[in-house]
């Protein structure tokens, strides 16, 4: 019976390698230089690339990071360093709640808050949607890694006459910085693949999107649109885009997790 459980594990790991292998094989085959430099071709023509979607994903994620990480980080500092009992419980509970909200519902929220008042789809709306999705993980990462910093370091700083704020931002945060950065990178990798909240916020665009108030193409949405289209050529492009996206996400994951597992917080786990 116990060996059966081993078989299950191998089966599940097998799925992972199958996914990686198939995407690597199929995606790399369809990948060429045009993919990174050309715009998508109008329907019916072959060739073209996804240069605008690659830049678009970058822009949306940058915006999301600028919204989600500062709010999440500072709220995490509050929970780890200042928190009172009742209020901290309420905030922690809210953060968990937000973490459990399906991404498509966050999309509806961003639509109601940004798209509806402005009357058009935009990069901004996509960034807001993904930014909100980044908050819960940012809070949790910050709280966890700050709590892992030994109390003695705080006491040392305080004994030297540093104020509490000075202690936090010049001693505690730098001590936890490698874990914090890795945690934020994992967070970024998570939203980089999000599609659902972008469908009706960033929408998509066959051309370059100027500024922050126009609809914008992103890699995950392009993969979705191309995969459900009937054209064989677009399927190849979807594979190539999937390959690029997955490589990016897994590379960030592997690097960040290695940094975390070597860091001081690892001993606590």
């Amino acid at each position: 019976m116990l060996s059966l459980s081993g078989v299950c594990t191998v089966f599940i790991i097998g799925i992972l390698f199958f996914i990686l292998g198939y995407l690597l094989f199929h995606g790399a085959k369809s990948l060429d230089w045009n993919f990174f430099t050309k715009l998508p071709k109008p329907s019916g023509e072959t060739g073209g690339g996804m240069a605008n979607a690659i830049v678009g994903s970058g822009k949306v994620i940058l915006l999301a990071t600028c919204i989600g990480v500062p709010i999440g980080f500072l709220a995490g500092v509050y929970l780890a360093e200042y928190s009172g009992k009742v209020f901290a419980f309420v905030i922690r509970y809210t953060v968990d709640l937000l973490n459990g909200v399906p991404s498509i519902v966050i999309g509806i929220f961003a639509y109601a808050m940004v798209v509806k008042p402005m009357r058009h789809f935009s990069t901004l709306a996509g960034g807001v949607a993904l930014g909100i999705m980044m908050i819960p993980i940012a809070v949790r990462t910050t709280e966890e890694f700050l709590r892992a910093v030994p109390v003695s370091m705080r006491e040392g700083a305080m004994a030297l006459g540093a104020t509490k704020a000075k202690t936090i931002f010049t001693v505690v945060v730098p001590a936890a910085i490698s874990g914090l950065t890795s945690g934020m990178m994992l967070n970024l990798a998570r939203v980089a693949g999000e599609t659902a909240p972008l469908l009706f916020t960033a929408l998509g665009n066959m051309f370059w999107s100027r500024g922050w108030l126009e609809p914008i193409a992103t890699l995950p949405v392009m993969i979705y649109n191309y995969a459900i289209s009937p054209e064989e050529d677009l399927h190849q492009q979807a594979w190539a885009a999937g390959f690029v996206l997955l490589t990016l996400v897994l590379m960030i994951n592997v690097t960040a997790r290695m940094v975390i597992s070597r860091g001081p917080a690892a001993s606590r786990r």
């Binding site: 599940i12 790991i13 799925i15 992972l16 996914i19 198939y22 995407l23 994992l186 990798a189 998570r190 980089a192 693949g193 999000e194 599609t195 659902a196 995950p220 993969i223 979705y224 995969a227 459900i228 979807a238 594979w239 999937g242 996206l245 997955l246 996400v249 897994l250 994951n253 592997v254 997790r257």
Partner: peptide, 18 residues
Amino acid sequence: LIELLAAVPSVIYGLLGI
């Protein structure tokens, strides 16, 4: 490795699904 499986974006699962 299993946690990596959880990090694969859902649109990629959809792609492989189709």
